[in-house]
Amino acid sequence: MQKSWWKILGAVLVIYSTIAGLLLGVPHLDILNETIRNLYFHVPMWFAMIVLFSISVFYSIKSLMYTNEVYDLKAVEAINAGIIFGVLGLITGAVWAKYTWGQFWSFDPKQNFAAISILLYFAYLVLRNAIDEEQKRAKISAIYNIFAFPMMVVLLFVLPRLQSSLHPGNGGNPGFNSYDLDSRMRMVFYPACLGWILIGYWIYTIRFRIRSIEHQTN
């Protein structure tokens, strides 16, 4: 029980933020209206993805430093879990865009760069599957991952700000501020972010344990 407290906390926070996110009041802003509730799901997915990709980079660096297959397995499973949340981030964003911008995909710079950043990590998985020799695969994958992460950061947080965009916080379009995120929303949004990050980490640890068992069996 003592080792699982963070799992319980993650589950409780996600359940709380889901129920409260659908039931508690939100500010009625032009265009957004009730769709602003998607903030409790869309943004936490991206935060969870970024945390998991950060973990993968950490273990990719350790894999290169110590040539330990355990670090390689941790890196790839962190990416596998991160991709799940990246795809969920794209889906929740597309649904939100449908009700605020009028279509699921409007080729907004933020949408395009987010999709490209996910494709970078799909390419990572394709690259791994194309290499049979374990040590060579681990080394090349680690090098790719170390370069892919800063590219992802640039695609998500730098390039969209340099172009006109419908997405809040990019291209001169202001992000959600103290007026938009009132105290009611903060009470849900922050727990949602922490909860989904913990759930994402939990998924990663489960995947790693499964992969470790498979690796030992083979």
Results as ranks from 00 to 15, higher is better:
residue 72 D to M: 04
residue 167 H to K: 04
residue 15 I to R: 00
residue 20 A to L: 05
residue 30 D to R: 08
residue 34 E to V: 15
residue 82 G to I: 05
residue 71 Y to G: 11
residue 71 Y to V: 09
residue 204 Y to S: 12
residue 209 R to Q: 15
residue 64 L to I: 12
residue 134 E to L: 10
residue 39 L to H: 07
residue 138 A to W: 00
residue 126 V to D: 01
residue 198 L to E: 09
residue 47 F to H: 06
residue 195 G to A: 10
residue 99 Y to H: 14
residue 22 L to Q: 14
residue 48 A to T: 08
residue 157 F to K: 08
residue 81 A to D: 04
residue 175 G to T: 04
residue 75 A to Q: 04
residue 8 I to H: 05
residue 83 I to G: 02
residue 103 Q to C: 08
residue 205 T to I: 10
residue 200 G to T: 08
residue 139 K to M: 11
residue 43 V to F: 07
residue 134 E to F: 03
residue 32 L to G: 04
residue 209 R to E: 14
residue 123 A to R: 02
residue 5 W to M: 10
residue 119 L to S: 10
residue 81 A to N: 03
residue 26 V to Q: 06
residue 202 W to K: 02
residue 36 I to C: 07
residue 216 Q to F: 10
residue 12 V to S: 12
residue 60 S to L: 04
residue 84 I to M: 08
residue 55 I to T: 08
residue 154 V to R: 02
residue 212 S to R: 12
residue 139 K to S: 13
residue 94 A to M: 14
residue 202 W to R: 00
residue 23 L to S: 15
residue 30 D to A: 15
residue 100 T to I: 09
residue 97 A to I: 06
residue 18 T to K: 00
residue 111 Q to P: 05
residue 138 A to C: 03
residue 92 T to K: 01
residue 113 F to Q: 02
residue 30 D to M: 09
residue 201 Y to L: 15
residue 31 I to W: 00
residue 82 G to K: 02
residue 159 L to W: 07
residue 108 D to V: 05
residue 93 G to N: 06
residue 105 W to K: 05
residue 102 G to P: 11
residue 195 G to D: 09
residue 189 F to M: 07
residue 143 I to S: 08
residue 48 A to W: 01
residue 9 L to Q: 07
residue 148 A to M: 01
residue 98 K to W: 06
residue 108 D to R: 01
residue 1 M to L: 11
residue 85 F to E: 01
residue 157 F to A: 09
residue 44 P to D: 01
residue 73 L to N: 13
residue 87 V to A: 07
residue 82 G to V: 08
residue 29 L to T: 13
residue 216 Q to N: 12
residue 123 A to Q: 06
residue 163 Q to G: 01
residue 68 N to E: 13
residue 145 N to R: 02
residue 65 M to I: 14
residue 182 D to G: 13
residue 14 V to W: 02
residue 60 S to R: 02
